[in-house]
Write a protein that binds this DNA or RNA. Structure first.
Length: 480
RNA sequence: GGUCCCAUCGUCUAGCGGUCAGGACGCUGGCCUCUCACGCCGGAAACCCGGGUUCGAUUCCCGGUGGGACUACCA
């Protein structure tokens, strides 16, 4: 497969949402494809009828697209190797299982679930690995025909060799060897006629000309089955790349129950896709230098399979938060403002004044790590302020009143107030009134912003504008 | 239980025989500043254990321990 074009795929099952581990897998596939000028394919693995959820495919595509991890071929955009939804490929699986059956690499099995359960239970009790005992492995042709004719429910199993061992090379793990005696006669076709993952993915990966299988480490131990299938068909075996798992804080495989695992939920909370992607890229991959901040485009350039880590990586929310804040502060203000707009609309805040809105975002973004938090840090620029008794007591002091009155009077004078003018005004006020430090700033900030702590006074007045500032100061002055 | 995978600060990681074991998050001290936040500067913090190989092992090999994954007619 030397000069072949690189083709990789992300093959999620449509369970309703995109798992962050899935996004990481998708991202690494995507990055490798871009880096190698190959193709990134999206394939839907919906062979489990029970787990398929309506609308899940659309949602998956929407989310993937939102993050920028864009596929070149898939159910929505098509391609030369479709259909890209497995439930629409039943014919293909039927044809291929026939070949396996004819060649003796697969066989019908009529064991029912009850017998299988009992078998496994006993094996477990005897501390033997739970595996199919091969009862139907050597059924005569007649017996099979008869059972089929009688309509006995059946599955089709892989006739996996019981001797020898399978050795293969994984790009991140190196050489891996597994004894064939450890490998089960995996079900290939379920009693409902649908293929299992193992069968469908091998057939599709071959038919779709996949060159590198990049997926989670949980698949590592089933590679021998897959290799045996490729060889049974006489197909070339693709390269394997098993990614380290994403972990909970307790180092178990990342799962819900221990926090959010759906990409949608992070997006809903207002994490920027830029931050999420950058953060996730660093879970299991790292460049040789100390660089950690990358745009998607930069990742496409820097990525390589060789620098993928072997050990699992804990999904550390703290670091994601930091990165979220970093991106909110460093990306273009206008862009951040646009991205944040839906959150303000949802909160019912009128952000019609674009100039003011931009100034608000420019200030508020110093305080947050997600878009949704921007709302809470911007509220006081839009809503009328609510004072506590303690606030009133501070505002009611003589000195506070003098300060407020002074600024009200000054702002009331005709003319335009630039931020520089406002800084000058503050300095003059301090010297004229003979009050400084917190004694000066706290009442003012409280009156304008609703809190003693926050942005500096010129910034506040500049954002609010002269009229609103005077209004707030006056209200505070008469707040008793 | 069996098989496989993995093992550097709490977390993400750099390291590919000789380094004061580097960076980032978090924590922490300071600076900036009226305050908060941002930002900047500094600090504490790691090579799982035991054998080898070697002049010398975090690094190579073996064993142990620990953790994880898989062990379905789920993917």
């Amino acid at each position: 497969m030397n000069n072949q074009q690189v083709r990789v795929r992300f093959a999620p099952s449509p369970t309703g949402y995109l798992h962050v581990g899935g996004l990481r897998t998708a991202l690494f596939n995507y990055l490798f494809a871009r880096k190698e000028e190959g193709r990134f394919i999206l394939r839907i693995e919906d062979t489990d009828q029970k787990r398929s959820i309506p609308g899940a495919v659309e949602n998956l595509i929407t989310t993937l697209t939102r993050t920028g991890v864009q596929h070149d071929e898939g159910p929505d955009v098509g391609g030369d190797y479709g259909p890209y939804i497995q439930s629409q490929r039943m014919q293909i699986y039927q044809e291929h299982i026939r070949k396996l059956l004819d060649a003796g690499h697969a066989y019908y099995c009529f064991c029912n679930e009850e017998r299988l359960d009992k078998l496994r239970e006993e094996q477990r009790k005897r501390k033997r690995p739970p595996m199919y005992d091969g009862r139907c492995r050597n059924l005569s042709k007649d017996e099979v025909e008869e059972n089929l004719a009688r309509g006995v429910p059946s599955v089709i199993r892989l006739r996996y060799p019981q001797e020898g061992k399978t050795v293969f090379d994984d790009i991140v793990r190196g050489r891996v060897a597994i004894d064939n005696s450890q490998v089960d006669d995996q079900v290939l076709i379920k009693s409902d006629g649908f293929p299992t993952y193992h069968f469908a993915s091998v057939v599709d990966d071959h038919l779709m000309r996949i060159t590198h299988i990049i997926r989670g480490e949980e698949w590592l131990s089933s590679v021998p089955k897959h290799i045996f299938l490729y060889e049974s068909f006489g197909w070339e075996v693709p390269a394997f790349v098993h990614l380290p798992l994403l972990l909970n804080a307790d180092r178990s495989k990342l799962s819900k129950r221990q926090g959010d695992v759906s990409v949608e939920s992070y997006l809903e909370k207002g994490y920027l896709t830029e931050a999420l992607l950058n953060f996730i890229a660093l879970l299991g991959w790292h460049s040789a230098d100390d660089r950690e901040i990358y745009t998607l485009r930069e990742l496409e350039e820097a990525f390589s399979l060789e620098r993928i880590n072997k050990a699992g990586a804990v999904f550390d929310l703290e670091k994601l938060n930091w990165m979220g804040g970093y991106y909110i502060r460093h990306l273009d203000v206008g862009y951040i403002a646009d991205q944040a707009r839906p959150f303000f609309e949802e909160a019912g805040i009128d952000i019609g004044d674009q100039e003011k809105y931009l100034k608000v975002i420019a200030t508020a973004r110093d305080y947050v790590f997600r878009l949704s938090d921007l709302v809470e840090h911007a509220r006081m620029f839009y809503d009328s302020l609510v004072f506590t008794d303690e606030d009133r007591s501070l505002l009611g002091q003589e000195e506070s009143k003098r300060i407020l009155a002074y600024i009200i009077e000054a702002l009331g004078r005709p003319g335009h107030w630039s931020p520089d003018d406002l800084s000058r005004l503050v300095k003059e006020a301090i010297s004229d009134l003979g009050v400084k430090g917190k004694g000066f700033y706290f009442p003012l900030r409280l009156a304008l912003f609703g809190s003693c702590h926050g942005p500096d006074i010129p910034t506040l007045i500049d954002i609010l504008g002269r009229d609103e500032s005077i209004k707030r100061l006056s209200r505070a002055l008469h707040s008793e």
